[in-house]
Design a protein around this nucleic acid. Structure first.
Length: 425
DNA sequence: TCTGGGGTCCTAGGACCC
DNA sequence: TCTGGGGTCCTAGGACCC
């Protein structure tokens, strides 16, 4: 039986989130920047039309921003995360099963409907999300995930922006696929495109009709699956909604170079503490902690990057334990005299949190474990209520001069009572 | 002056074993 | 010139995604 899969993708998600709360920006060019206001990470259609590419370094495009009055924003992930939750909640009643694939897109299994009703169903989804959240979405409908992705690609290329496309209803699918570079296929990146092109496989249509044995020889197994999916054979099922994460990372570029061990150590402690918070939120514990540091990779002459892993004596999400491990790792990494530009903490070998449960051979008593767990819960609650970093460890530093800059950030409209929008008559 | 951050999966190759 | 043949497990690094 063929599935009816939909891919629902928020249009220019971060830019659209900003617009919801500043409607006067409708039809104006809007760009959202990365941390430290470094690169462009989201663009409204108007900004795209100005030729501002994804990932563009902001300083190189300052002229264009200024000439065309591009409205710039620092990233407001608190807002985007909350808006994403609202979008996903709106989608759920329309679907039999859903896989939230990223902050701005979800795959969904649609109920069994006659094919001629697919597009109107997609339109209904689209109107509901727009009405409930103010976010415009596009909907691609197809028998496989890969084809649903292709549908979204085709939507982008058609001038009549209806926002919904059911692949099965397309009269000239092959002709359209022949006009699409193989690079546009989900899972085919830079390197795989080069390999395929060497075999003369240049368009999506070429890949769809390629000799699968040949494809298998030059691509890993997922490349093979992708080719099958283009032919309507579903190989990539919807994954479980609550699949536990396998690693947690927190890393940042610094607003300016960091030279001293003291400052670097503060930053790494702060990242470890953020990572630990994420871990507790997911009810997980980590067994391995890795610290990595890097100097400015755009100044190749002094580029230095290194990583050090520490195996924790017991799987934990208790911040002080992770801070100690991070310090130990950093001792091995730090070389004086360098200008560090970025650092991070990666937690892996995750397990389900069984805190409160005393470990068989450990010296820590049940009572002590319970107190540790309570302490973390209290800190998390304070930070949840009053904003990240309100309660923190001294090791994270007080001044934090390396802290990223977000000079153009919009308010936390939906998650902080103090920043809620006010309507004036 | 100024160039993001957070993930997953796969594979090749080394170490080790019989 | 020939240099056994399977296995397993682990890790680093590559490739991809948004």
């Amino acid at each position: 039986m063929t599935l009816v899969l939909a891919l629902i993708d928020c249009d220019n998600f971060y830019a659209s989130c900003e617009r919801v709360f500043q409607p006067r920006l409708e039809s104006q060019p809007v760009a959202v920047l990365s941390n430290n206001d470094g690169c462009v990470i989201a663009r409204s259609n108007e900004a795209k039309a100005l030729g501002i590419p994804m990932g563009a370094p902001a300083f190189q495009y300052r002229g264009i921003f200024w000439r065309h009055g591009v409205k710039l924003f620092s990233p407001n992930f608190e807002l985007y995360g909350d808006m994403s939750d609202r979008v996903m909640a709106t989608l759920r009643p329309f679907t039999e099963q859903m896989e939230i694939y990223s902050i701005d897109e979800a795959f969904a299994l649609l109920p069994g409907l006659p094919e001629e009703e697919h597009e109107s169903y997609g339109q209904a989804i689209r109107s509901a999300v727009l009405k409930h959240t103010g976010i415009p979405v596009s909907v691609g409908i197809a028998p496989t995930k890969t084809l649903a992705k292709i549908a979204l690609e085709l939507i982008k290329q058609t001038p009549a922006k209806t926002g919904v496309l059911a692949i099965g209803r397309l009269p000239n699918l092959d002709a359209q696929l022949a006009g699409l570079s193989v690079r546009k296929v989900w899972g085919i990146g830079h390197a795989f495109t080069a390999r395929l092109e060497r075999l003369g496989i240049r368009t999506v249509q070429d890949l769809k009709h390629a000799d699968l044995r040949q494809v298998r020889r030059i691509l890993p197994v997922n490349g093979f699956r992708t080719a099958m999916e283009l032919n309507g054979r579903s190989c990539l099922p919807l994954t479980a909604l609550d699949a536990p994460c396998k690693s947690v990372i927190c890393s940042r570029s610094f607003s300016r170079a960091v030279r001293t061990f003291g400052e670097l150590s503060e930053a790494v402690a702060a990242f470890a503490a953020r990572a630990a918070e994420k871990l507790r939120k997911e009810h997980r514990t980590a067994t391995i902690l890795q610290v990595f540091v890097e100097t400015n990779r755009f100044k190749e002459r002094d580029w230095y990057a290194n990583v050090k892993a520490v195996v924790l004596p017991r799987s934990t999400n208790y911040t002080p334990d992770l801070l100690a491990a991070a310090q130990e790792a950093l001792q091995h990494l730090f070389i004086p005299g360098r200008n560090y530009k970025r650092a991070g903490v990666l937690l892996s070998e995750l397990q389900n949190d069984s805190s409160g449960q005393p470990d068989l051979f450990g010296e820590t008593s049940a009572g002590a474990l319970e107190r540790r767990s309570q302490l973390m819960k209290t800190m998390d609650a304070i930070n949840q209520r009053y904003g990240q970093g309100t309660a923190r460890f001294l090791a994270e530093g007080t001044v934090q001069p390396w802290r990223m800059k977000r000079l153009l950030k919009s308010p936390a409209y939906t998650t902080q009572l103090a920043e809620i929008p006010v309507a004036r008559c």
